[in-house]
Write a protein that binds this DNA or RNA. Structure first.
Lengths: 247, 247
DNA sequence: TACTGGTATGAATCGGATA
DNA sequence: GTATCCGATTCATACCAGT
């Protein structure tokens, strides 16, 4: 398996991809939630919005959390449109969002041409909420280019229960590898998974482990470095596993 | 605890309710999903859509399943607007939907004036899907009139896992009582829960069991009869429980 | 290895003070 | 009134250390 990482703006890089070169898109864009007023949403950094005051960890901030709702929708639509162009027929696109952005996300998915086929909840640990229901779920909107490939003997779950990695976490929104490994199976074996918002590269790690190629784009040099290191580690480990028979 | 059932059109009945007479709205409107084309959605009856072909059971059809998406939104908005008017400050409104209607549902909730505060997934049993992700979740969009009452020491879960009742089921979309019992707790003790689409009356049964009053509306005479019977059973049972100390 | 008890923390939320 | 900042809050769960 191989991986390619681009440091740069997602949309700019996507435009350079050839048609029908991607077999699945799995990504977690910076969605612009959090905060009560529009200015709070657009002016505060991701860390300021999402990290509990007093939290001891010191994870780096990430860019892209400054769009208002309308611009988020059109930006995401354009991005998914380019992904659609670069995808093969039967390709699946999966986009993470929180509850606030879920409707906007499925709108953008459809506006970009994908056939919206479902919304999958997954449950990270979360805080309780006094006087009401705790918000314990996040969502993955998924869609297909054309129709699902019914010839594959593939049955994937419709919801995931897992929590964020706590140890060795390098990104505020890092996803558990076990969940990502399930998701990348939607990509045919040996195909290429695209993640325009690579972050710390969990999608890539999962893809490589599951025998898929990975194509990642990330704006922040800090995170490109981290993703590169993690992915290189995977390949080295693979080679090692191949070389020595034990375990 | 007491209950009131109206046989009639939801909107018509809602308009007759006095202002600020309702403490919570919990309902499962007939949403128009299923079917890939708008004509498929609007022409097939609820039974045809939701009941497995060849299934032997004989649940009655229910009305209201023939709206297209736009008209569904405006109809639901009007309905939720009337509910909003009839609700007290801090009242919570919860609306069930499937994944397809979830964005429309949160739109309507907000258009009606409620402050959308979250989307809760709940998982009924479902069939796997070849070549992709199983669609195992349905959603409850919830919102508040004004703001949540933070003085209550109430902490409710953010997702529910339960399967639809199989035995003793009297309505196609009947919800498990255990889930409904959790939901009705959002209504203050002794308050009144409104369900404009009572169906077989599960919301009412849960409300009565949890010590809330219930106000239900149902168009179908068939289901009003069933709901009435179930609710009367609850009260009788309550009386019995009160009379005899054992269990 | 399996259990147990202590501790840290979360893609938040809320009220209130300040500018 | 709006924007911004600050700090208190809440408990299920993962993690750790110790038996």
């Amino acid at each position: 398996m191989s991986y390619t990482l681009h440091r740069g703006d997602a949309l700019t890089v996507l435009k350079t991809l050839p048609d029908e070169s991607i077999d699945a898109v799995i990504t977690d864009p910076p969605y612009n939630s959090g905060g009560r007023t529009s200015s709070e949403r657009t002016s505060r950094s991701a860390r300021a919005k999402y990290v509990t005051a007093g939290s001891a960890h010191d994870l780096a901030d990430f860019p892209g959390e400054n769009r208002d709702q309308r611009s988020y929708r059109s930006w995401l639509t354009e991005l998914l449109t380019e992904s659609y162009r670069a995808a093969v027929n039967h390709a699946v696109c999966m986009v993470f969002s929180d509850w606030r952005q879920a409707p906007t996300t499925s709108d953008a998915l459809q506006m970009a041409g994908w056939t919206w086929s479902g919304t999958i909840p997954w449950k990270p640990a979360s805080r309780p909420r006094k006087g009401g229901f705790k918000q314990s779920a996040e969502f993955i909107a998924w869609g297909v280019k054309g129709s699902l490939d019914n010839s594959r003997k593939l049955y994937l779950p419709g919801h995931f229960i897992a929590s964020q990695p706590r140890k060795d976490r390098v990104h505020i929104t890092q996803k558990p590898i076990e969940v990502m490994r399930q998701l990348v199976r939607i990509c045919p074996d040996g195909g290429t998974v695209l993640d325009p918002f690579t972050g710390s590269g969990s999608t890539g790690v999962a893809a490589v482990r599951e025998g898929r190629h990975f194509l990642g784009v990330e704006l922040s040099a800090h995170y490109v470095g981290i993703a590169e290191r993690r992915l290189r580690g995977e390949l080295t480990q693979d080679d090692f596993t191949l070389a020595g028979p034990e375990k």
